[in-house]
Design a binder for these strands. Sequence first.
RNA 1: GCCGCGGUAGUAUAGCCCGGCUAUUAUGCGGGCCUGUCGAGCCCGUGACCCGGGUUCAAAUCCCGGCCGCGGCGCCA
Length: 435
Amino acid sequence: METKFKNVRCRDITPSLKGRTVLISGWVHQIRDLGGKKFIVLRDGSGIVQITVSKNEASKEVLDAVENTTLESIVQIRGIVKEDPRAPRGVEITPIEFRIISLAKKPLPLDVSGKVSADIDTRLRERVLDLRRTEMMSIARIGDKALKVIRDVLRSEGFIEVFTPKIIAIATEGGANLFPVIYFGKEAFLAQSPQLYKELLAASFERVFEIAPAWRAEESDTPYHLAEFISVDVEAAFMDYEDVMKILEKVIYEVVKTIRDENTDDLVTLNYSLPEVSLPLPRIRYVDAINILRGKGMDVKFGDDIGTPEQRILVSALDTELYFITEFPTKIRAFYTKPKDDDSEVSESFDLVWRFLELASGSSRIYIKDQLIEALKSRGIDVESFQFFIKWFDYGMPPHAGWGLGFARLLMMLTNRSSVKEVTLFPRDKKRFTP
RNA sequence: GCCGCGGUAGUAUAGCCCGGCUAUUAUGCGGGCCUGUCGAGCCCGUGACCCGGGUUCAAAUCCCGGCCGCGGCGCCA
């Protein structure tokens, strides 16, 4: 779209525009001063383009502005597009006007051009500049594409996108730590999960999904945890855990395939080749996973959690990057998880693991009121405080199932980064809530 | 919360084990040369040892405490 600041974007400047006068605005990405010639690399949200200034051809006004500009300053240029094989992409702009709109201070607290790397701590402190790096732009574009594909696939399966309340009266998951808020003088909490509300919505609309933040005041301090994270939640009536696993693997398959096909430049920028995914993904029952781990010399028994170290070992034994672990012990899953009909020690549940990282988990849910009350009691949870939820099990609660997917974890794996903080634009963790 | 590792110019680093002379290099920044760079090049300059205490003739270097960070775990749909 044409605005008073620009009528073309960097990426759109091609040799086919040669001879045309264009108006363009962006960030000064690099300055290369050869004396008689200066090359300014201009960057905007679409990419970069070269501005070429000749000392004996440009006006004094242009030369002064070019002389005074600094890295990351905002400049507006009116100039003529020139085709030249010596220029990057064979095209450059010769400025007629060169206006500094916003002069950047120097030196920069972070090298945006990527010549000198920075610690993740520095990068998060100087995040706005860090986000201007081409790697971060690629990560953001891949994240955007993933969201689009997730929505497309779910809608094609008849799911509608919904929002659930983020200020809630009670914990949905029992033990986890919540962030308290004051709600008109009463104690309330930030939602740690849309779990209960999405179940109630599935009881009305049949197939729903939500992409929204959730908050957990956990002690978790790892590269895979955030205090505020985007959760992709799905809930469907008249499905069981095996049905929603199929939905989930289809989502993952389409996301990986589409990004491989359509974000090739971004993957090159990130120096990563996404693996091919073929369906169905392997399903490893929990008991079998325990046996595999024991065979590898791990000291694990039925009822133990399968954590990151165990998942690292499992994947090496499986010869596949993405797999499900299914049918976890009932007692190590959340209260709403439905036990198997023929063995209540084991639940209709699953985790989706990508190499060493749990991306998603889900289950069939209990839909019989008495079973739900029993499940709460057996975990020592106060049944009374869940009446707002249990009540609706009296009025036609369908069998249902669902899953939740950590979006940053998915994006981290799609971009081959080592931390969810790196792929979250402004991450909130235990020791960081600014910028 | 536990264990491990670390904190040196704006950024990223070498030096630390084995204490000593002007604290290394890159990038950035300032100046100079250079009319096709594309991580431009060359020359000159600039700028730093986390805080506090201790040992010592002498501490970036050794010891103690603190603060901060990173990693591994724990905790955690």
